[in-house]
Amino acid sequence: MQSLKDYHPIASLFYFVCVLTCSMITRNPIWVLLCLIFAMIYVIQLKGLKYFLLQVLYFLPMLIFIVFMNSYFNSLGLTVLFYLGKGSPVTVENLTYGIISGLALFTILLWFICFNLLLSADDILAIMGKRLPTIGLSLAMIIKYIPDTIKQGREVLLNQKAMLSEQQLTGKQKVKFATRMLTVLLSWSMENSLETADSMLAKGYPAKNRVNYSREYFNSTDAGLILTMVILFLGHLICAFSGSIKFAYYPFLNWTGLTTNRILLIGSLLSLSLILVFPLLLDIINWFKWQRILKQEQIMQQHIVDGIIVYE
């Protein structure tokens, strides 16, 4: 079993699309919290607890903003808690809605952290490259030119400074200096890149049967992942939109769909949990496999006497 990272970028991307959709599809607190917990576990597993706590700290202002926006300006909800200044009453209902939708946004941000760790720039290029060759090429060249531009910019700056020697610049001269530096930088990068373009043309860029090297191969495991996700995801969509997870915040907190259809409810919960637990499951299976290999190696070690395997 490979972990999610080792799948083809398309398969990983598809997984993230599924997970993001699941996280945004409903504001039912149970569903939001379920997605949040798994996103949390996954981020902690990938980056450690400290990183996760830092993210929580970064997100707090945004959470406060969302809660404030939801509760200060509307008077919906029946259970009044208190009055905030001259604004409308803060009720249990609009406070809950604010917190839950804030947490939903946090879940999405956490999934994107995982996305950034699992899909590198290379993978994004690989996804783009086949279907949108021109844009994929442009992206690759932009990534290549960024360090080049910064390096050349430093060089130009040093050159221009050397010409000034000890001279102190006034405000207007500083603007002029910056202008000249940027002008030099632009013309260098333009002409340099056009040279590259010409050599690309000379090496047969427009040829029809160009092949490009790709490290990724789409194989049956990737197809298997996508198929599994499609089935689980469709199952979840059907169950979710059947109304069983409908949750009304106003006028009072009420899980309106709870009494409709238990089977669909459980189906929806189950399919969501399966989708969410999938990468963790892969890692756990891998861990156990690795432990088994280690154990076998230990047993083998006992049989080795003076570098020779001895069976008794």
């Binding site: 844009i135 090429l137 442009s138 060249m141 960024i146 531009t149 333009m190 056009l194 590259t196 043309l201």
Partner: peptide, 27 residues
């Protein structure tokens, strides 16, 4: 937008302004 850019099949030279200016912007 992407598809229409792709369909024009620009020559490498015509790609360069976009590439260079984007690289400058990102830098």
């Amino acid at each position: 937008f992407f598809i229409s850019y792709e369909q024009k099949k620009p020559k490498p030279r015509d790609l360069m302004p976009v590439v260079v200016l984007s690289a400058l912007a990102v830098a």
